[in-house]
């Protein structure tokens, strides 16, 4: 039993390493829209390479929590994507994030992947003083070391670990 676990663990590490390398190699120059809120930030809610690969999975995961269980203010929120990545139009307003050549469109267009989110979702940051923007808070980021910022160490702090374990036990 311990032996087989060891092998599994080894295989897991190998795979993880492989993917990590792949993910890093996919990183290139920044595509973040100049002048957007995101341009002034160090990193997204996860490293860029990871966001590129998995943003749709993250959004899908958290959307189920939000719609079905009413858990709001999750780390991965489409409204936050829009808040950070939408470009200003120069007249005090914002450009639609899915408009031609804008943040979402540029990549989706290049990859020929349909972008369905904005058939229903709002495409520009919400008017901050509108009452309807109540639940859309600024991006406070994530406290977990699992999803790392660039340059952060992979180690979990004691506090984080306790939090993590509590969460796991809850599940």
């Amino acid at each position: 039993m311990p032996r087989s676990t060891g092998i599994k663990r080894f295989a897991g590490m190998l795979m993880a390493g492989l993917f990590a390398t792949l993910a890093t190699s996919a990183q290139s120059d920044s595509v973040v829209t100049p002048g957007s809120k995101a341009a002034g930030m160090d990193t997204c809610v996860a490293p860029t390479a990871e966001m590129r690969r998995y943003h749709m999975e993250y959004l899908k995961h958290d959307r189920v929590e939000t719609v079905r269980q009413g858990v709001r203010g999750l780390k991965n929120s489409l409204a936050d994507c829009v808040d950070c990545h939408a470009a200003k139009d120069g007249n005090g307003g914002y450009l639609s994030i899915n408009a031609d050549g804008q943040f979402c469109d540029r990549c989706h267009n290049y990859m020929a992947v349909t972008l369905a989110c904005f058939q229903c979702h709002r495409k520009t940051p919400a008017d901050q003083d509108a009452s309807s923007a109540k639940t859309s808070t600024g991006n406070q980021g994530h406290a977990f070391g699992l999803l790392l910022d660039r340059g952060e160490s992979a180690a979990l702090t004691a506090e984080e670990r306790a939090q993590f374990q509590a969460l796991v036990r809850e599940e």
Binding site: L74, K75, Q140, G141, H142, L167
Partner: peptide, 12 residues
């Protein structure tokens, strides 16, 4: 993925 609420997250 784990569900990770933001630091200021309001709802459980």
């Amino acid at each position: 993925l784990l569900t990770v609420a933001k630091a200021g997250g309001e709802s459980r």
